[in-house]
Structure formats: C-alpha cells, structure tokens
C-alpha cells in the first residue's frame, strides 16, 4: 500500500491541513509520499519533508504551475499516480476541485470528506449534511479520497524525508488565472484554530459584525459566520461554516445570533465545547450547545469582552 498525498500550499507556505491528510494516509498504508506542485516551492517541499511518517516528497516546481490550476496540477498527478494504491488530498476547495478531475479521467470513483479510516479500503463519511454516516468499501485499484481535515490530528515533525525534483510537461490551455483576492488573514486560520467565534444574521449589520471580530481577537480565535451572515454581506464568503462552507472542530465554538440550521450544524457540531448566545430560547442551536445563554447579543457581547479582559 502506498499513498500519494497532494500537498496544499499558499504563498510559499504549506497549509496546516496537509499534516492532517498525512495522518489519515498513514492509516491506509506506510509508504506515504507527498506531491508538492507549484512554482518557487522549495520551502514548501522542506516543510512537507519534515512531516512525521512521510517517506518521500516529489517536487514539481515550474512556472506553468504557479497558479495551481486544477487542469495543470491534474496533468502532474496523472503522470505520478499509477504506482500508488491511494490518492489523497484535503477536502478543501483545492482538493475538492482537483481530485474528482483526476477520478473522471481515470474513470474511478472518489470518496469525498472521509472522517474515519476503518481499513485500507473501508472508510466512513458523512452524507445528508451529517444527518447520516456511511461506511463505504472502495475496491478500486486506486482509491481516490478527500479527507475531512477536522477529523484527523496533525502528524508532528521528524527528520527530513528525501525529496526529488521531477519535471512534467504541462499543456493546459483551457484555463488561466485572471486575479485573486486573498481575504485578510488576521488571527488564526479558521480550519485549525483552537477557538472559533461565529456570527449569524442576528448581528444585524457589517458594522455590528465587528463585535464578533473583537471578541475573537480577545480569545485569539478565528472568525466564522453563518450563510445568512455571508449572504447579507456581514462577513466574507471564506468564513462560512457549514455543509457547503468550512468544517471546523475547535476546542471551543461560540455561536452568536445563529439559529442552528442543520446546514450550519454540519460544519461545527464536532467541536469539543459549544456555546450559543441567542435571544430565542427555542433556537435549535441550544439543543446541541454545552452552554446556552438566552440573551440579547448586544448586551451579552460587551459584557463578555469585559469579563475576559
């Protein structure tokens, strides 16, 4: 059993999810290699090589991979993947975009969002927004899997694994990058933060949403949002937590002015401790919260901030 993990990186930095995907990979096989595809990625390759359990890092560093388009990275993966039994990536927007393209070309199925490895060919994954958990056996010669990173602890650091540079002909003329706007990354990253403070429609406006940012700053937390808050323009799209946004499982999740729709719960109900602040005592969020506070959030948040300072 050997596993190829596609590393995810941004601005020359390995994303924290990759260490979690490696942890999942090690439960499927012991020959775990990491592919780093991009341009000017030598530091990313070094970071990947120092992840515990990694056998080797394959680096494909060339200008035509600078924007890491799915069509281009797919060509790279296709040249390497035939000697592996498993192909893994994080169930991030990067992994979700790339892996099914590979699967389509290989005419092989993909298992999305795996949360548990039962054996090298049997896995658990949530379906229906986490309303059910399916145990699925995959007997394909190459098992293509995206991993829900919040369900796996990251591997630690170890002595650097070997890495080799490879060059691949990339011919993608289908797509090109026009522009990218990075959300400003104040505070810890949503996917791996120890504490997340999320605001919903109850915040009422973008200006009021600053109360969430301020509390998050106080707790060294990442900021999250419900779909309603993102749709209303209170928060950026990449902060949406839920079935169709980001999945988080921090030590502490604080939901403020969020009702608790199943689609939102799907993204945060594995958090260790959940706090809900809502003025409606019948809000479904209270059914899953460890600590519920029925209160007007505009009273509660300033009090909470001063209690924590």
């Amino acid at each position: 059993m050997s596993v190829l993990v596609v590393a995810e990186h941004l601005g020359g930095v390995l994303q924290s999810g990759t260490a979690r995907v490696v942890a999942a990979a090690l439960q499927m096989g012991d020959g775990v290699d990491v592919l780093v595809a991009g341009h000017n990625v030598s530091e990313v390759a070094e970071q990947a090589a120092s992840l515990a359990g990694v056998r080797a890092v394959v680096v494909v560093d060339q200008p035509n991979l600078a924007s890491q388009l799915a069509e281009s990275v797919c060509e790279v993966v296709l040249t390497l993947v035939d000697s592996y039994s498993h192909l893994l990536a994080a169930a991030s927007t990067f992994g979700k975009n790339l892996l099914p393209r590979v699967a389509g070309i290989k005419r092989l199925p993909q298992l999305s969002d795996v949360i548990e490895v039962i054996s090298a060919d049997t896995f658990k994954r949530p379906i229906y927004a986490g309303g059910a958990i399916a145990t699925v056996q995959n007997t394909a010669p190459l098992k293509i899997i995206t991993v829900r990173t919040s369900a796996f602890g990251a591997v630690g650091q170890a002595a650097a694994a070997a890495y080799s540079g490879v060059s691949v002909d990339v011919n993608n003329s289908l797509t090109s990058l026009v522009s990218e706007t990075q959300a400003d990354a104040a505070g810890p990253e949503l996917g791996s933060a120890r504490v997340v403070v999320s605001g919903g429609r109850g915040m009422g406006s973008k200006e009021n949403f600053a109360l969430i940012e301020s509390l998050a700053g106080r707790l060294n937390a990442a900021v999250g949002a419900s779909r309603a808050a993102v749709d209303a323009g209170y928060a950026a799209n990449d902060l949406q937590v839920g079935q169709t946004g980001k999945i988080v499982a921090p030590e502490l999740y604080v939901a403020v002015g969020i009702s608790g729709a199943i689609q939102h719960l799907a993204g945060m109900k594995e958090s260790r401790v959940i706090v809900a602040i809502n003025q409606d005592e019948d809000a479904p969020i209270f059914k899953i919260a460890d600590y519920g506070l029925k209160m007007d959030l505009f009273e509660a948040l300033p009090q909470l901030e001063s209690a924590l300072s």
Binding site: L108, P109, L111, T122, P126, I127, G130, G131, A132, I133, A134, T135, V136, Q137, N138, T139, A140, K269, I274, E281, F286, K287, I288, A289, D290, Y291, G292, L293, K294
Partner: peptide, 18 residues
C-alpha cells in the same frame, strides 16, 4: 467499485445547560 456497507445515525450530542 463502491459498496455501502452500513448507514448509521450520527452520534447525538447531549444538550448541555442554560
């Protein structure tokens, strides 16, 4: 190649306290 072996209800979270 895929075979669903089982479909289960997720672990329920206990409601906490107010």
């Amino acid at each position: 190649y895929l075979k669903v072996l089982k479909v289960q209800a997720p672990a329920q979270r206990q409601a906490g306290e107010m």
